[in-house]
Amino acid sequence: MAAGGTGGHMVPAHALAEELMARGHKVSLITDDRGAKIPGLFGGVQVNILPAGRLAGGIFGWLKAGRNILAGRKQARAFYRQLKPAAVVGFGGYPALPALLAAQGAGIATAIHEQNAVLGRVNRLLARKVDAIATAYPQVDRLPPACASKVELVGNPVRDEVLALRDRPFPKSDAELNVLVTGGSQGATVLSSVVPDGLTLLPEPYRARLNIVQQCRAEDIDRVRARYAELGLKAELATYLPDLPERLASAHIVIARAGASTIAELTAAGRPAILVPLPSATDDHQTSNAREMAKEGGARMVPQGEFTPERLAREIEALGLEPDALAEAAAHARACGRPDATRALADLVERIARTPGMDKIAVTEKTVSAPVQGALA
């Protein structure tokens, strides 16, 4: 597996690794320094760290990136000669680039998995040469037309705890209206600023039933807590929600960004949402991520520039506040889910692998043997 050092790349790579190991295959990981430090992933798996470069910073930045990519490719080739992998699977992120370039030069089967609805920069560089392209959405922007024949829709793998929610009924909303607000590590401040005032604009019968759980940045939490107290709304705030799957299980409405993992979990569990895409996301990919769920009626999408308390209240009412309307929106969200994503991706990797027999090795890219110079821009 070859994956850059963010959770968005590493979590689906980890899910595939677990599935392949359960099928009797050996797995290795290639990543960067950041990926190596993400806790709870790839325990007991051989990890290989390659130098990667960030294609930014003017001509000198590009030259440095080029040197790091060439060095990473050389190290990956030496690694493959020892390991003799059946396939190398890239999940995006800049460390994946030298790993897949080395595999292609060595005649090893290659595939990429794109978590977003816009093909990422590294995957765009690799798309024409890989054997297969696995996607998480039926429509993926910036995908070269010449690559259409090797695209397979598999979905985006999610944690087992979230996948288990798919078999649980949507919670009744007669007594309480549970709202979960999660902005992740990026850009949660705008949600903290808008959501309290937006929820207080809901009609009184609904406002009185609100039970709010909100993830906030540490620098925002005291301000947000004071604002909820001033508005008389019941809210539980935290900078981190270790029991997020259980919180998601009891939620009637989720207010969130539109990252690939967020969308995958919402659709796997079947939870209606108000989505506020992060405008600074590369290629505005979060807006594209939200497109399918919003089109099918499982979510309402609001651009951040239009995200005001008044707009939030209107969108929540449009999504539906009555139990039947919420349950219907939840069903639409669930219909967008692809619960077999991990299995489908593993099937694809087994099909393209060129080494016969059961002693196959999937290489997950992890780049750490030299100081990381950054990710490709």
Rank of each mutant, 00 (worst) to 15 (best):
A3P: 03
G4C: 06
G7K: 07
V11R: 03
H14L: 02
L16E: 08
L16H: 03
E18T: 12
A22L: 13
H25T: 04
V27I: 12
D33F: 02
D33M: 06
G35L: 14
G40D: 13
L41M: 10
V47M: 12
I49R: 10
I49F: 06
P51I: 13
P51F: 09
P51A: 08
A52D: 07
R54S: 12
L55P: 00
L55K: 01
A56E: 15
A56L: 08
W62F: 11
G66C: 07
G72D: 11
R73E: 15
Q75V: 13
A78Q: 14
Y80M: 15
R81W: 05
K84A: 12
P85N: 08
V89T: 10
Y94F: 15
L97P: 02
A99M: 10
Q104L: 14
G105Q: 15
I108Y: 07
I112P: 05
I112G: 06
H113Y: 05
V122C: 09
V122P: 08
L125A: 12
L126D: 02
A132C: 11
I133G: 03
A136V: 08
Y137G: 01
Y137A: 11
P144W: 08
P144S: 08
C147R: 02
C147Q: 04
L153N: 05
G155R: 04
G155F: 02
V162S: 04
L163A: 15
A164Y: 01
R166P: 06
P169E: 07
P169G: 04
P171E: 05
K172M: 13
D174C: 01
L177H: 01
V179E: 05
L180K: 04
V181W: 02
T182N: 03
S185I: 11
Q186A: 09
G187D: 05
A188Q: 03
V190S: 14
S192F: 00
D197F: 03
D197N: 13
L199Y: 00
L202E: 09
P203I: 10
P205F: 00
A208I: 13
R209E: 00
L210D: 09
Q215G: 05
D222A: 14
R223V: 13
V224S: 06
R225C: 02
A226H: 06
R227D: 02
A229W: 02
E230H: 10
L233I: 01
K234Y: 01
K234S: 14
K234D: 01
K234M: 01
K234A: 14
L237I: 09
Y240E: 12
Y240N: 05
L241N: 01
H252L: 11
H252S: 09
I255L: 13
A258V: 13
T262L: 07
T262F: 07
A264I: 11
A264N: 06
L266T: 11
L275R: 04
A281L: 11
A281M: 07
T282F: 06
S288E: 12
A294S: 15
A294L: 06
K295S: 11
G298W: 00
R300C: 09
V302T: 11
F307D: 10
P309C: 08
E310Q: 15
L312T: 10
I316S: 03
A318G: 05
L326P: 06
A333Y: 09
R338W: 04
T342M: 10
L345R: 07
R354N: 07
A362C: 12
K366G: 03
S369M: 11
A370V: 09
P371V: 14
V372K: 01
V372R: 02
L376M: 14
A377T: 14
